[in-house]
């Protein structure tokens, strides 16, 4: 099939970007969306043009590197998948796809579709861990953890840090990302020791990075490829209120 693309091109951080149109023919429905971009890029290189830069690595929805908005939807039109997991069978011959980078003040564009998500790392640095050193830990079975808690912690811990939640949020809030981490540790005995300091520090860093305030629209939950639920934000709020006020 034939696919028309309208892609955001931006040379570097300082440059002013704009849209550019491309058309890719002989697209097979078995191809992934990125394989279609690969094809286009190879054609561009052969023609001596600059290929479209986009972040990707695992191409199986787990590393969190990839992330583009396709027709205004973070990671494309499907629910529960990343951009790299999207296949061309989700589109029709002749479709026009508008492909844009994540847009948020805290995710500056580096080039084309590549953005800088260091702000996420800095939030993690501010408290996304249990403060223990290597060695001297008790036997793994010394603390039984109810399966239901372990499973809930896991559900939150599956966040891949892709930033789709921020990208789609009209407030560019990072509450789902932060909420997932805080919830994981709230459910586990290992995380309880530092829960007050952790949540205060992570929220402070989140605010300092310039992410917006959540207004509970729920777009993040709808777009999160790992289907992290809004309950994680409620837990974050509760933990923060408890830590700040009680």
């Amino acid at each position: 099939m034939q696919i028309n693309l309208k892609v955001w091109r931006q040379e570097n951080r300082q440059a002013i970007g704009g849209y550019k149109n491309y058309s890719v023919s002989d697209v097979s429905e078995h191809m992934s969306f990125f394989e279609m971009l690969d094809k286009l890029n190879n054609e561009l290189v052969r023609k001596g043009e600059d290929p479209i830069a986009f972040d990707h690595d695992c191409r199986e929805g787990i590393c969190g590197s990839c992330g583009v908005t396709i027709n205004g939807r973070a990671h494309g039109p499907l629910r529960g998948v990343t951009s790299c997991q999207l296949h061309m069978r989700s589109f029709k011959d002749g479709d026009t796809l508008v492909v844009e980078p994540w847009r948020a003040a805290s995710f500056p564009v580096i080039k084309d579709l590549v953005v800088d998500r260091k702000s996420f790392d800095r939030i993690m640095e501010s408290g996304g861990y249990v403060s223990i050193n290597t060695g001297g830990t008790p036997d793994a079975n010394a603390i039984p953890i109810p399966k239901i808690d372990a499973d809930a912690a896991f559900d939150s811990a599956t966040c891949i840090g892709c930033g789709a939640c921020v990208a789609i949020c009209k407030n560019s809030a990072a509450m789902l990302f932060v909420g997932a981490k805080v919830t994981q540790f709230t459910k586990l005995p290992q995380g309880k020791v530092e829960r007050r300091e952790r949540v205060k520090n992570m929220v402070a860093q989140m605010d300092a990075e310039g992410f917006g305030s959540c207004t509970n629209t729920g777009a993040c939950e709808a777009e999160c490829p790992k289907e992290i639920s809004l309950t994680n934000i409620a837990t974050l709020n509760k933990e923060y209120l408890k830590a700040s006020l009680c």
Binding site: T69, N71, A105, K170, G212, S213
Partner: peptide
């Protein structure tokens, strides 16, 4: 705050 955080909007 949220206007500031959400610097630019999508084409679609």
């Amino acid at each position: 705050d949220n206007k500031r955080a959400n610097s630019s909007s999508y084409n679609v």
